[in-house]
Amino acid sequence: MARYVVRQLMLSLAVMVAVSIVGFVLLRASGDLALRIAGPEALADDVERIRVAYGLDKSLILQYLDWAWRVLHGDLGRSLFFPEEVSTLIAQRLPITLGLGALGLGAAILIGLPLGTLSALWPNGILDRAVLAVAVLGQAMPPFWLGLLLIIFFGLTLNILPVSGAESWRHLVLPTLVLAIATMPTILRLTRSGMIDALRADYIRTAKAKGLNPFTVVVKHALRNALIPIVAIAAVQMGALVGGSVVLETVFGIQGLGYLSWESINRADFPVVQANVLVLGVIYCILTFVSDLLHAFLDPRLREQ
């Protein structure tokens, strides 16, 4: 187990370094940053001054090492627009995005897991078909469009929920719903196929032959085994939710990390964009690592490798 943890940890670190390099290079490949900061009407001298001031005249490798060195010391740089440091900005925005992602994923699991299990108990039954139809619908709808529909219906037509911002729990209902509907189909399908396989297994027949009640057979014996791949996917889905927050937070006007990224890209606030890419990458790696740990915890065969 210890070796497994160490190996996964090393792997995660390698991925984080790779993400930081790719993010850094891509941002600089997107155009002349000095020119963008200075604006189209700036004088050539001013552009050059800005280039020197932000260190953009140095070689790419030096710039990266310089940036990485400061990041390792906890310094993510300064925003070109906000008075705060980038780290302060992220500390303010990240909890909103993570919280929303967790809410959405939680709701998706809460709906997807029981529905998937019920579908698997009577495959191809009426419930199963209805549930699958809903899942296909949820998967096919683009979240931004679904978000707009919900805003129109609940916010404008019924006028019972606020459509923008994140000041109270009522503001979070619609975005959570969108995230849940987008994520639930994956969880549901995985649960269903995993449970159908598990329920066919010989150990389920054994469990029944032991006289255990149906709930114990389904939950303790089948779901426990079916859950292993679901846990792995759920953690990765959380990463996708955080990454997808750019669109959702823009639609609902929520001041999270996604919205911050969107604003900063428009303003060429490159220290913020760069830091956001890094933070998202790190979150993804942490979630994958956690998923590996959970996987190992649930599957005793993996635990010993």
Partner: peptide
Amino acid sequence: REIRGDRIGVIFQEPLTALNPSL
């Protein structure tokens, strides 16, 4: 269900798959 596993015990063919791998 009261009889299964209590008054009548069952032994299956495949000992590899008859036991739950994660318990």
